[in-house]
Design a protein around this nucleic acid. Structure first.
Length: 897
DNA sequence: ACGCTGGAAGCACCA
DNA sequence: GCTGGTGCTTCCAGC
């Protein structure tokens, strides 16, 4: 890759402006760009999944609609299924019929709802320059061998010249382009000789934003990387060092003396930030005292590498999902697009639709964002090859016979490394490394995608402050490849039949991005301080006979990534029992790192508003404590309970040294007799009350036969040893194993309980709620199909602070059905428990649960109001994902507690 | 020499 | 405004 190439290849002015068609102003609709990148990046993968024996071979004709200009011969543009930005050479006014052609370079994806109709305007056109088809385009700026982030790697010649050699030619041209080949992008590789051009681009973008295509700038940066501001740091100006002079060493010569511009953690005051050079509430320059991903690597890195696509309107590039959601303009645009896009998503091929009839609303396909307008029966995690789901799109862990499971969980603590550090190795499990396995699909190799996700109380999404990092070395046995999806770095690992469709994740480390860099990103509302828990998220794409791709997702337990916290925080690995009489007095054994007799155990119950309603110390039984465990007496529940009440407890070693909370269920009138029957149950939930995986709609794993695959089994004993930490015995969580309990709060996605529960005549799904709003339970009449009555938990709508968590934390979600587990089952979802009971009369009165029955229509109404409205742009302001306020979060999303 | 780890210094933020 | 505690980031040293 020569400098010449870098400089020559792309000139965005020509592509997007001189072209005369892409000079849209700030309101240019670039929302779909991320999708493009994603799709592009995924194409090879998907393609391979479908047809290629080789993991990374490319066949532009297989399940792959992403045809860049390289396929210029194909003149007809094609609109993609998912929200996508269409880059084509055709005239803007040309109406593109879906599937009409394959000339569109970009693919959809992420955020979108991009209707064909929207093609009439705000499209990105990429000239059909043959140069874009250069097979030599560097495929993956992110597949760095170094411990540095992909961003940093991007600015590295080595990264391009060596790192990607192995994948060179393995990816379709389009993908390469999407990934920002240095050849194909001016941003591609400043460090590779494109520096001068990079400066030019920077100037265009930041100094002359309009000239650079201002319309796109507000949405440019990748979510994961600090974007925009070359001016964040004087030192890291792309002009000065990032572009022209690659950082010679990973370590700065001196420590920063002042993180100038560092955002105050406590402040979200936008005014504190200087206005962005471009029209965006972007952060201010001087953010980082030293080269940051933002500065150093953003423009000239993967992002840069992502090149034209990413830099020009890739929504996720510059605007985190939260911000994107709050973008009125986006929403407005989306309003007209959502439906159509959803159609493509929700309307599977006829045959598939038939297959899924039975699923009905058991599986609510709830795109995490605006894409979900109106859920309807028949949804399934099936996507067209050109429309892979965005990374923050909730997906089930199981569908039909296929289930993706984390067989061996990672340790709950993994110290992430900074860019300035060397790698701290791969994520580890208690013994060895985490293992992920795909059950039920062993006939073909499939690709596993891994990324670092959040572990907060909202839906899983790529973590803004952490990034997966490919670890290499002698000890690494698992083949993997770094890629960029949705502008997020991911690792792609093949799952091979010969390996029993499992993979040991020994090639994934975690990179910490500096808070200041991320927080200063335009639109980033998350703060990094104390946001140090992540989950390792796994996705698998399974080609279906009908050509669609089945996407499943699961996630690990939360992993603490900060040095200090990891070293000092008590961690509850297990406790027993998991429930007990409201009268208390029973001994509760809690064990885990940093737990000792000196620790305190505090029981608490939170109210709807998240405030503590009750909190009391459990009396420690010193004589029974050991070095890593503590025994306490369960305190008496403070209120009269007529139904199981789930409370939380945590272990603390002092101020700010609290473990994550664990759930304990008080059972009314239940006395504990005799020694606990030690039933070890995997508890994949780290912080039950704070984490919810997917929107409730995903709490059930769906199957085509109309059965539910609850992620949680029953528990009816208070004598359970709840395994909270990493566990490595998959058998322990088998639904048919002895362990009846999988805390209903466990993450559905991580659930390894493939319990198949046929819906009884009447099914009641009871949400775990401690919601701000009165919990609701929705009784959904059976759809036209054979699906029996189901009751869905419905998140409180318009709960200002709340949200998702509401669904996941309800003490009442814990239902004990010891007597007849076969009869009553508890379905736990991402944050909610779904209970199936054949005999409704045995259910606790809804009233006592704070639930109310509503009909499917009600559900739809709520959805329309809370989600659809948001999606449709009716209430864009509510599409605020500000984590702190929790306001405006989707109903199914949790709010702060 | 390099990668991985553990520890800790120094600074900024927060209560 | 001051101060102590806490968290973040970087650096060092050992294996």
């Amino acid at each position: 890759m020569s400098t010449v190439n870098c400089a020559e290849e792309l000139d965005f002015r020509l592509i997007f402006e001189d072209d005369g068609r892409q000079t849209a102003g700030p309101d240019l609709d670039v929302r779909t760009f991320p999708s493009s990148a994603q799709a592009l990046v995924e194409q090879p993968f998907i393609q391979e999944l479908q047809s290629s024996p080789s993991c990374f071979t490319s066949d532009p004709h297989v399940g792959y609609q992403l045809q860049g200009p390289q396929y210029g011969a194909q003149v007809n543009p094609r609109a993609f299924d998912c929200p996508s930005i269409q880059i084509t050479s055709i005239a803007p006014n040309n109406h593109l019929e879906p599937d009409s052609s394959q000339d569109v370079l970009a693919v959809g994806g992420a955020e979108g709802g991009y209707s064909d109709a929207s093609w009439s305007r705000d499209q990105l056109y990429l000239s059909l320059e043959p140069r874009y088809r250069d097979p030599a385009l560097c495929p993956s700026p992110c597949s760095s061998l170094s411990s540095r982030s992909w961003i940093s790697d991007l600015s590295s010649c080595e990264s391009f010249s060596h790192t990607y050699d192995d994948v060179e030619g393995e990816l379709p041209d389009a993908a390469r382009l999407a990934m920002g080949s240095p050849l194909g992008s001016p941003f591609g590789s400043p460090g590779c000789g494109g520096g001068a051009f990079g400066v030019e681009l920077w100037q265009q973008k930041y100094q002359h934003p309009l000239a650079f295509n201002p319309a796109l700038s507000p949405h440019q940066s990748p979510r994961q990387s600090p974007r925009q501001s070359p001016c964040h740091s004087p030192r890291t100006s792309v002009t000065d060092e990032s572009w022209l002079n690659r950082r010679p060493t990973s370590r700065p010569s001196s420590r920063p003396t002042s993180p100038c511009g560092k955002r105050r953690h406590s402040s979200a005051d936008p005014h504190a930030r200087s206005p962005s050079p471009h029209h965006s509430p972007s952060p201010t320059p001087g953010a980082s005292p030293r080269g940051s991903v933002t500065d150093e690597t953003w423009v000239g890195s993967p992002a840069g590498a992502l090149g034209p696509l990413l830099m020009c309107g890739f929504p996720e590039l510059d605007v985190p999902s939260k911000t994107r959601r709050t973008s009125g303009s986006q929403l407005v645009l989306l309003a007209g697009q959502v439906d159509s896009s959803l159609e493509s998503f929700q309307d599977p091929p006829a045959e598939e639709g038939r297959e899924q009839e039975g699923l009905a609303e058991l599986f609510l396909q709830v795109p995490s964002h605006f894409t979900w307008n109106k859920p309807k029966p028949g949804n399934a995690p099936l996507f067209r090859t050109s429309s892979p789901p965005p990374l923050d799109w909730p997906l089930p862990s199981q569908y039909d016979q296929c289930e993706l499971k984390v067989e061996v969980q990672p340790k709950s603590y993994h110290r992430a490394h900074y860019e300035t550090e060397g790698s701290r190795g791969s994520i580890k499990a208690a013994a060895g490394h985490p293992i992920v396995k795909l059950h039920g699909c062993s006939e073909q190799r499939v690709g596993l995608v891994l990324f670092i996700g959040t572990a907060d109380d909202r839906y899983i999404r790529p973590h803004p402050f952490y990034q997966v990092h490919r670890v290499t070395g002698k000890t690494v046995t698992t083949m993997c490849q770094e890629k960029i999806m949705d502008s997020i770095k991911v690792l792609e690992i093949p799952l091979l039949p010969e390996n029993d469709m499992s993979a040991s994740i020994d090639c994934a480390g975690i990179l910490k991005l500096r808070n200041a860099d991320i927080e200063l990103k335009k639109g980033e509302t998350d703060i990094g301080r104390k946001n140090t828990r992540v989950r390792v998220v796994f996705r698998v794409a399974i080609p279906q006979p009908d050509g669609q791709i089945l996407w499943l997702q699961t996630a690990s337990i939360p992993v603490e990534c900060s040095q200090r916290s990891g070293q000092e925080l008590p961690q509850v690995d297990s406790f027993s029992p998991a429930s007990g009489s409201v009268e208390g007095g029973e001994e509760l054994l809690i064990s885990g790192p940093n737990i000792s007799a000196q620790s305190r155990v505090v029981f608490m119950e939170r109210g709807p508003d998240g405030r503590s309603l009750w909190e009391t110390d459990a009396r420690v039984v010193p004589e029974k404590c050991s070095g890593s465990s503590i025994v306490v007496e369960v305190p008496v529940y403070n209120k009269k309970a007529t139904s199981p009440v789930q409370v939380q407890f945590y272990v603390t070693n002092g101020k700010r040294r609290k473990s994550v909370t664990q759930s304990f269920t008080y059972l009314p009138g239940v006395r504990h007799h005799g020694p606990p029957a030690v039933a070890t149950v995997k508890q994949e939930r780290w912080e039950p009350d704070r984490i919810s995986q997917n929107p409730p709609g995903f709490s059930l794993t769906a199957s085509r036969n109309g059965t539910l695959s609850p992620d949680v089994a029953y528990y009816g004993s208070c004598d359970l040893l709840v395994q909270c930490g990493p566990q490595s015995n998959p058998h322990l969580h088998h639904p048919h194993s002895s362990a009846p309990l999988q805390t209903p709060l466990m993450y559905p996605q991580t659930s390894s309980v493939p319990l198949q529960v046929s819906l009884p005549s009447q099914t009641t799904l009871i949400p775990l709620q401690t919601s701000v709003m009165a919990p609701q339970i929705t009784t959904i009449p059976p759809p036209a199909s054979s699906v029996p009555l189901q009751t869905f938990s419905v998140p409180p709508h318009s709960s200002p602070g709340g949200s998702q968590r509401d669904l996941s934390l309800s003490p009442r979600s814990t239902f004990v059905t010891p007597a007849n587990p076969q009869k009553d089952s508890v379905l736990a979802g991402p944050g909610e428990a779904l209970i199936i009971k054949q005999e409704p009369e045995e259910q606790p009165p809804l009233g006592s649960l704070g639930l109310q029955e509503i009909t499917l229509d009600d559900v739809n109404e709520i959805i329309d109001r809370d989600i659809g409205g948001l999606v449709g742009g009716d209430q864009p302001d509510r599409y605020d994902w500000e984590p702190k306020s929790g306001a405006g979060t989707l109903p199914f999303c949790g709010g702060p507690q």
